[in-house]
Amino acid sequence: MVKAGRWLRYAWAAPYTVLGLLLGGIAVMFGARWRPYHGVVEIFGGRIGRAISRLPASLGFSAMTLGHVILAVDRSALTQLRLHEHVHVAQYERWGPLFLPAYLLSSLLQLLRGRNPYRENHFERQAYAVVAERRRLLRDSIRG
């Protein structure tokens, strides 16, 4: 049974989850695959994924998260970026409908400061840091 707090996090992120499901549904109509995975819906591949992967780096992406939906250009990108995207899921759960405006504002502030609006974005830096820490802990546990 899912606790009430979990349902509240799903509800708080729901506006973006609905958008992700709509965009993902379109991708599925063009050959993308989907599956539930650890509380999110992952959608990857298909003709739209191939088209996005051919865009110039400044216009494209390998994966993105909308609420509890992760959209990836293909299975490989999803596998490589899954941990990073799950950090964004947690950010959506925390920020809810405020996430996208806060994300865009962070990018705008970095751009105005002459910095990279993606790499220096607060939310991206947090996601990269969490993934790096998880990988460090995994390496340390393997070394024993």
Rank of each mutant, 00 (worst) to 15 (best):
M1E: 15
M1I: 13
V2N: 15
K3Q: 15
A4M: 15
A4F: 15
G5N: 15
G5I: 15
W7D: 12
L8G: 10
R9I: 09
R9H: 13
Y10N: 09
A11K: 05
A11R: 13
W12K: 14
A13G: 11
A13P: 09
A14N: 09
P15Q: 04
P15D: 08
P15T: 08
Y16T: 04
T17A: 06
L19R: 02
L19F: 06
G20P: 05
L21H: 08
G24N: 05
G25Y: 01
G25T: 05
I26R: 04
V28D: 06
F30A: 00
G31T: 07
A32E: 12
A32N: 12
R33D: 12
H38N: 14
G39K: 13
G39L: 14
V40P: 02
V41D: 08
E42K: 08
G45K: 15
G46S: 14
R47S: 13
I48D: 08
I48W: 10
G49I: 14
G49R: 13
G49L: 13
A51W: 09
A51N: 06
I52P: 08
L55F: 13
P56D: 09
P56S: 08
A57I: 14
S58V: 08
S58I: 08
L59F: 12
L59T: 03
G60S: 14
F61H: 02
S62P: 00
A63P: 02
T65D: 06
L66A: 10
L66Y: 07
H68I: 11
H68G: 05
I70T: 04
I70D: 02
L71P: 10
A72Y: 03
V73Y: 06
R75A: 07
S76K: 14
S76N: 14
A77H: 06
A77V: 07
A77I: 10
L78S: 06
L78G: 07
T79V: 06
Q80P: 00
Q80F: 02
R82N: 04
R82K: 08
L83Q: 15
E85T: 10
H88L: 02
V89H: 05
V89M: 01
Q91F: 11
E93G: 12
E93N: 07
R94Q: 10
R94I: 02
W95P: 03
G96N: 12
L98C: 05
L98D: 10
L98R: 12
F99M: 12
L100G: 00
P101I: 03
P101F: 08
A102M: 14
A102L: 15
L104T: 07
L104C: 09
L105S: 11
S106D: 09
S107W: 06
L108F: 13
L109I: 10
Q110P: 00
Q110E: 07
Q110S: 09
L112E: 03
R113P: 00
R113C: 04
N116Y: 00
P117G: 01
Y118L: 09
Y118D: 01
R119G: 00
N121K: 07
F123K: 01
F123G: 07
E124S: 07
R125Y: 06
Q126P: 00
Q126V: 03
A127W: 05
Y128M: 11
Y128W: 08
V131C: 05
V131L: 02
A132G: 03
A132M: 04
E133G: 02
R135E: 10
L137W: 01
L137Q: 11
R139I: 01
R139M: 04
I142C: 01
I142W: 01
R143V: 02
R143H: 03
G144I: 01
